[in-house]
């Protein structure tokens, strides 16, 4: 275990060490103290290490993560795990806007709530939110899965492509081209798999509904102009 205190070590040094093949090859477990909402902590990781951050983080924590596990004990700012490629990012508090934006792979777990535009332009990752998500979540989401155990704000899945959304609570409103679709066996298996992967064994997998793209707006047609 390597402990790095951000009150004593510049952020640039922390990230450089986490990128250094020699250091991450030797040390698999890292602990970061006193993050104090600093931005860009543990970004661009590319090794199967575990980084535990004790406290709150600012923008883009674990951005573009590959292979690593990053766990935040507090809340996270804008763009948590943005463009993640693989690995696992867990936040025990809430996440601000655009959590998991454009993420291509890996698993993002938010134990609290996520603000607006969670999973915006999602490109293949899985996102599990224990609480609720804000408006315009999964906007233009292309691939991957978003599972919300609480409620979803207005405009869910607006201009959705092929991503699949599961929501247990109330959906305030669906965005353009997003529709409720029947839960098939494969969906029930997906929900159970996502809950298990996130370690949420106190959530009933039976209560989820599925939302996906109606694919009506995939090609721009003048008769659809009123839908935008």
């Amino acid at each position: 275990m390597q402990t790095v205190d951000l009150d004593a070590v510049p952020l640039r040094d922390l990230n450089a060490r986490l990128h250094d093949p020699a250091q991450v090859g030797r040390i698999a477990d890292w602990r970061v103290l006193h993050p104090k909402g600093r931005h860009n902590i543990a970004v661009g990781l590319d090794a199967p290490v575990t980084v535990r951050i004790d406290g709150h983080v600012g923008y883009y924590c674990a951005g573009m993560n590959q292979h690593a596990t990053v766990e935040v004990s507090g809340h996270a700012g804008v763009g948590l795990a943005e463009n993640m490629m693989s690995g696992r990012v867990v936040v025990h508090g809430n996440a601000s806007q655009s959590a998991g934006a454009t993420a291509h792979g890996g698993l993002l777990v938010i134990h609290g709530d996520a603000a607006a535009r969670c999973a915006i332009s999602l490109k293949g990752a899985d996102i599990v939110v224990r609480g609720s998500v804000g408006p315009m979540s999964a906007f233009m989401a292309q691939a991957g899965r978003l599972l919300v155990c609480g409620d979803a704000g207005d405009g869910l899945g607006d201009s959705l492509y092929e991503a699949v959304l599961y929501v247990a609570g109330r959906v305030k409103g669906l965005g353009a081209d997003c529709v409720e679709q029947p839960m098939e066996d494969a969906d029930r298996a997906s929900v159970a798999e996502l809950l298990a992967a996130a370690g949420l064994d106190d959530v009933d997998p039976a209560g989820f509904r599925r939302y996906g793209s109606a694919r009506e707006l995939y090609t721009f047609k003048i008769e659809n102009v009123g839908a935008y």
Binding site: L11, R12, N15, A16, H19, H39, N40, V43, G44, G58, Y59, Y60, G63, M64, V78, G79, E82, Q97, S98, A101, T102, R117, I120, S121, F139, M140
Partner: peptide
């Protein structure tokens, strides 16, 4: 999209640029 998914305005842009710098050392 016509706007970036995870930043708006110059203050956010500064943090986004810092992120890209941090990722590429």
């Amino acid at each position: 999209a016509c706007r970036h998914p995870d930043w708006t305005g110059p203050d956010d842009l500064a943090i986004k640029i810092q992120e890209l710098r941090e990722i590429t050392d």
